[in-house]
Design a protein around this nucleic acid. Structure first.
Lengths: 370, 370
DNA sequence: GTGAAAGCGCTAACAG
DNA sequence: CTGTTAGCGCTTTCAC
């Protein structure tokens, strides 16, 4: 594999005499060209020690010359493994998930795995199909962000003994390994830190999805308020309907949040701290606030979640919570490979800490306090 | 050979007597349970017409009961096809590419194909590896956004007769089918439309990548200026260095553009129209403009590209060009499947028209003109 | 209608 | 060191 000695021959004539059984070059072709057995060629290529140096070199050269590419399917039929892992994602237009993808792929690739990608678009039926496909394909393991409404699909994987690591949203009952974000802690700290300075009414705008991250943020919101000495009843949770329009290319947008906020907030009736379940939601709310003539942070403080690339560039810049997407991705792959290697290893579950990015949108000007 | 006719008893003990060759249920297991030949079972499951209704039902029932999943690798070893297509993407944190992914996956899945995802992160070496992996895997076709610096990797696919459809960035010399955006037209129209009202100096901030979309936008920029009657020399093109930091989870950000713009623009020295190669760039520039005390659109008009979800929510809202990601994705899959079906079909190349989203950032207040 | 046999490309177990 | 044999799970002839 490390022997780039491509012979400077014409590759044309050999190509022409190649048996037409299939387009691809196989071990047989190499063996035939060299008068060796398929087996020897296989061993030479695999780097087994039972071949003479001369033979190995000849084989490598011929393989190189013919442009041989091992057929993974045949190889894997024998070994029973596929060296493919499935990545089930709800929606890459969520920047956090989009950021997860390169990390996962990079890590898998460096371990010799390929990534089969399935997008469920928050649809249970689609998730069901995705799992079906994974099962049929016989992936060696699955990394998935579950929809969490029903967990049937994931149970099927469990029953089929397919190693699974859940990302971002946990389904503890299934006993899978898990890698997520400590959203509760992240929001709690952010809220406490922002709410310290005389907040009376705080509103949390959340996605209307039955997922653990939403629950965690709600809990964090309440905990943060409590630790800032604010009465729980002054914390209001508002669910923003999430578009489930499949086929829409931009399901994540500020639109819904904007409408909802515009309908609830008036210059006379508004909270003094708004927490958003993600930065897009924050963006929609920001516009609604401005439309009311309210100023951030002077009239209302605004706190986002996700630290999407635009957050630091809004005006005012958005205080938000940065999620270590890269770490989540690489850790998840690490967990999965470990589990594949040893299915009986103890369950691992980790929630990585997010980082508060304190910016202008929660900064109380001295004028107000002083 | 195939003598372990497991009785159709409790699935528990059947499972126990099954030879430990593999965990998965195979045709053999079903056949054994029913006292049929593997062959018959295969035909029954495949829906071939040469099996009695009774047999078929029994087979289907047993398959269902055992939770049979066909082994794609074995099947495809025979057929030579893998029913997998490769999707090579440079970077999902580009919202346009992120939006492409669900469209492609959805379309492929509905045609029975799985998607193998490779992320190249704009690295030539990574692209090389990706293609290698695709070749080894034997995908039935490839959808790819090429890096375009060198096209070696894609040539290898061409030589291996793998059907390829290029997305977004074309390499015409290779003769692949192509689906992209008519960026030149999109920018030209947007520029003409914005520049009409007395623009004197226009600057285009572009990504510093040697790709056809950049070239197209530059051409469109010049053409748009020309058609607005502006001297070509009043149109300046500025290349913003693009981060190639692999492993960074957010390679697309407004940072570089912001820095560059901050260094070039002063209250006294500034263009009156800024065109940005993408909306993140526009966002970075917007902040730089504001930092100078310049107002958009009164002092400087700003035009983005991509219509990222945040564009409509900036203040002022950003005039930009919406790219039909969904259409690009589905069209590309369509092209690819056609090509797989008929490798000798004539080459198809299409550039879908983007849509100008005219918003506040290019709106001249009447006060100025009147 | 059903079964037996062969083979897809490769690897692992035995020879020699 | 190298070749032969067998078999991974499935589909496709070809008999019966």
């Amino acid at each position: 594999m490390h022997d780039e000695r491509a012979l400077p021959e014409r590759s044309t004539d050999t190509a022409m005499m190649r048996p037409q059984r299939s387009q691809r070059v196989t071990l047989r072709d190499i063996a035939a060209g060299l008068g060796l057995s398929v087996n020897t060629v296989s061993r030479a290529l695999a780097g087994k020690s039972q071949v003479s140096a001369a033979t190995r070199e000849a084989v490598l050269a011929e393989a190189q010359r013919l442009g041989y590419q091992p057929n993974s399917h045949a190889r894997l039929l024998v070994s029973g493994r596929t060296m493919v892992i499935g990545l089930v994602i709800t929606n890459p237009s969520n920047p956090f998930y989009a950021a997860l993808i390169p990390a996962v792929e990079r890590q898998c690739r460096s371990a010799g795995y390929s990534v089969l990608l399935l997008v469920t678009e928050e649809s249970e039926q689609s998730e069901e199909e995705a799992v079906q496909q994974l099962l049929r394909f016989g992936v060696d393991g699955v990394l998935g962000i579950p929809i969490q409404g029903r967990s049937d699909a994931w149970e099927r994987l469990a029953k089929a003994n397919v190693p699974v690591v859940l990302l971002s949203r946990d389904i503890p009952a299934l006993g899978f390994d898990f890698v997520g974000i400590d959203a509760e802690q992240g929001i709690a700290e952010a809220v406490r830190s922002a709410a310290g300075a005389g907040v009376r009414r705080a509103w949390l705008f959340e996605e209307d999805l039955e997922i653990s991250t939403v629950t965690a943020r709600i809990d964090g919101f309440h905990r943060g308020l409590a630790s800032a000495g604010i009465d729980r009843r002054d914390g209001l949770v508002i669910k923003v309907p999430t578009r489930r329009t499949h086929g829409a290319s931009l399901p994540w947008s500020p639109d819904d949040a904007h409408q909802m906020a515009a309908g609830l907030i008036t210059p006379d009736h508004h909270p003094d701290l708004v927490v958003a379940g993600n930065d897009y939601v924050a963006l929609g709310i920001l516009k609604a606030l401005h439309a009311c003539g309210l100023t951030v942070p002077d009239d209302v403080m605004l706190l986002g979640y996700g630290d999407h690339p635009f957050a630091a560039y809004l005006e005012p810049s958005l205080t938000t919570v940065r999620l270590p997407a890269d770490d989540v991705g690489t850790t998840a792959v690490d967990f999965l490979l470990t589990r594949i290697a040893d299915p009986s290893a103890p369950r691992r579950s980790v929630r990585l800490p997010p980082i508060l990015m304190a910016r202008e949108s929660t900064r109380r000007p001295d004028t107000r306090r002083t």
